[in-house]
Structure formats: C-alpha cells, structure tokens
Design a protein around this nucleic acid. Structure first.
Lengths: 227, 227
DNA sequence: ATATTGCATATTGGATCCAATTTGCAATAT
DNA sequence: ATATTGCAAATTGGATCCAATATGCAATAT
C-alpha cells in the first residue's frame, strides 16, 4: 500500500550531511583549478564560509586526503596535492588501460536514457561559450558514456584518476583552442555508442585519451611553472 | 650543525595520530576477515577500546568509506562492505592489468635491499605454521616486490583492490592447501626479479594472479554463504 | 494471534571547548 | 647587518556536550 511513498522516503533519507556538501564543494574547487596545487586550506576558513563547525570540514578533508587530492599537515592546513610529470604519465597509462575497456562494455548495453544524457552534455559542451564550463561538461559527457558499464570499481578508479588531472586538462582546454578536435572526437565516440559498437567506441576512446595526452604534455610545464 | 637531529626530528614528526592508528587497526580487522561483510562497527564501541572520543573514530571511518571498505549509515554504524561476484571479477581484471605492468618496472630497477626484504617475506610465508598469518605475509611479499616500481598511483590502486579481496584470499588460503602452488610461484617470481628480468616477472605474476582467481572462484560462494 | 502505537534507548552528526605546539614576528645579542 | 631568542597568535587534534531521530520493545487495539 502507498508504494509511491517508499521512493519518497528513500529520497528523503538521502539528504546530504554537511560533511558531504563540503567534500563535494572542496573537490569541485580543486578539480576546477580554483584551488591550486600547494595552496593551503584552513579548516576555520571553510567552516565560516559554510557556517558550520570545523568538525564536518575535517571529515571532508580526511576524505579528500584518502583520495589523494590534499595532504593534511598539522598547523599548516590541508595542502592541495601537486602532480609530478611521472605521476601525470602514470594516470594517463591507467586511463588508457581502463577507459576503453569500460566504454566497450557500456556501449554494448547503453540505454536510450543514457544516450540522451550523453548527447545532451555533448551538445552543451560544443555550444558552451564560457570556457570555465568546458572542463566540467567534458567530464560529464565521459561520465555519462560510462554509466551503463556495470563496472563500479573501474569507474571509481577512473573518477579519481580524472580528478587528479582535471585542473590541467581544464587549463589546457582554455589555453589552446583544441576544442574543435575534442568536439569531433566526442561525436565519433557517441556515434559508435549509438550503434552499440563497443570495439569501435573503445578504439576511439583510446585515441581520444592519447590525443588529450599529446595536447597536454607541452602545456604541463607551462602550467605548473605558472602556479 | 647536528645534522643527525634533522632525521630524528622528522621521525618524531611522524608520530601517528589516534585517527591514523584507528584507521590502520580497523583496516587490518576488515582485510583479515575478522570483521565480516555486513557487520556493523559502532563508533562508541571502538572509541572505548582505544580510550578515545568518537571524533578520531569517525574520521577513520570516513577514510575507510572513501576507500570503499565500509559504508557509514546513520543510526546503524559503519557497515563492512560486501563484494558481489561481479565486483570480485572486476578487481581481478584490474589486478591482471596493473600488477604485471608494475612488477615489470620494479624488477628492472630492484635494489638489493628490496630484494632482501622480499626474500625475507617469501621465506616467512613458506615457513609460517600459523595459517592466520599466511594472508598478511603473502600480501607483504607482493608489496615488497612492487616497492621499486616508482609508480605510486598504480600501487595505490593495487593496494585498495587487494584490500577488498584479501579477506576472501585469506579464507581460501586456509581452506585449501594451495600453499604449495603459491610457494613455488613466489620463488619463480623472486628469481625473475633477482635477474632483473621484468618481462618474465610480469608473465609469472599474471599467471600467479590468474591461478589465485581460479582457486578462489569455487570458494567464493561457499565463503559468502557462510557469512 | 496479529498488527499498530507509543515511549525509552541507542546512535550518529555537529557545536563548543580545551590542549598542544608550531609559526611568525619583534626584541635582543653578536 | 645577521643570527638568536622569546613570546603572542594561529592552527590543528581531540574531548565533552547537545540535538535529532531511528530502532526495539512493550503495551494496546483489532
């Protein structure tokens, strides 16, 4: 009886805690490049912004540390992690291994709903005039394509890997006008997914990541020097 | 002046916080299988054991959640994560991709010190009579072999993946007497590392993981049912 | 006998308070 | 001018306290 109530109850149960909200907010600031590598995050400062005590802030920072985005140092605050060129290369190695594998599965079982979402982000990305939003939309597009892969563990790794390099990707998207290339490749990948052609989607994704890497490497030093 | 002091000062600086100690302890309990999937961890209970308040316990639990080992649920405590057969397979997929890659690099640059450590754990593993210690020694052996890979991001993923399946591996090591097989394979891998033969070490590691998977699959249902 | 209701208890999330100690800067000494 | 010392302020880790509410069980109603 009243089956509809169940879903509403579940939704109510999912009200995010302060800690969750602060975690998401800080993660966003870091991966957007708004908080740069080496910068210090003071607990008290964040607590005041969100009108909460330091407790939920500290929990959020501990979680960010577990994911490698910051390093908590006593009396110094949470220092935003930097990325050496070696680690940067490592992350691309992992992306090149896992993302083609994931999209292969996802493309084969992709649902019309997911396809709609991905198409939407793809179009938004192509049309967006504000370069500050390119990074986020690019990310959302790729996330959408992987949704139906049924590989949560792979996705967790891909997400964390992407978080680490996202600030650099975003800076590069703004600096160069490699948008054209990205737009073309996104549409090709989307097309392969529409046809359920996992193999082709995988190959295109591999090349897409490789292109991203090639575009980014020359800018890596420039960006890290500028910090 | 007094150069030696620096190192001591650094060492002193690394005194672990309560939160760190509790995190390590809970992680150990989970990956040892002492705390089983589905069990609830009460903050107050842990706090009393360690004679601390709930604050550091909560921070530890948040970190464990970030790594996927528990899921914090209000009024219910931190529930130890279970692993579906699909996720189990996923983790082995990832291990099969990353571990051979890592050991290939590690074997090429392995130092005498690291080799000594790995040999030590290998021998301990072979000689250990108490089956409760097999899992930990097995893990330590593999960790040692990967030490010189210079791939921190890969290692982090491998560690977290291993954490998730370790309870099952340990149960299986105790249930079957596949120790013989493991011992032989460990020595073969170690030998390839001694010779700096990265390719061979990678191939042997791949087969070793594959064997582990084959041994574990039949026991997976048995173990999860028994919980 | 079974289902519903109400209340005491348990349990977590967050606020406030306290302790420890590093950091930064000014005063002092060389 | 430079290096050393001393002290106030800043900052984090942890303890204690409070609020909200879910859970479990007993009492009640059907």
């Amino acid at each position: 009886m009243y089956e509809g109530m169940k879903e509403r109850a579940v939704d109510l149960g999912k009200t995010a805690s302060s800690s969750d909200i602060i975690f998401d907010a800080l993660r966003d600031e870091i991966i957007s490049g708004n908080l740069k590598a080496g910068e210090s995050i003071r607990q008290e400062y964040i607590a005041k912004i969100f009108n909460v005590s330091r407790i939920p802030v500290r929990e959020a920072l501990k979680r960010l540390e577990a994911q490698g985005l910051v390093k908590n140092e006593r009396y110094k605050g949470a220092i935003v992690s930097s990325l050496s060129e070696e680690e940067f290369i490592e992350i691309y190695e992992i992306r090149l291994l896992l993302e083609p594998l994931v999209i292969k599965e996802a493309a084969r079982r992709i649902t019309p709903e997911t396809l709609k979402i991905a198409e939407s982000y793809c179009n938004e990305f192509s049309a967006e005039p504000d370069s500050n939003n390119w990074g986020k939309l690019n990310r959302k597009f790729h996330e959408a394509l992987y949704r139906d892969s049924k590989k949560p563990f792979h996705l967790k790794i891909i997400n964390e890997a992407s978080d680490r390099i996202d600030p650099y990707i975003r800076a590069q998207l703004v600096l160069t006008h490699g948008m054209e290339q990205a737009r073309i490749e996104h549409n090709e990948i989307l097309d392969a997914c529409r046809n359920g052609d996992g193999e082709k989607a995988a190959k295109l994704t591999y090349d897409h990541i490789q292109d991203s890497y090639n575009a980014l490497i020359p800018y890596l030093r420039k960006i890290t020097d500028g910090a």
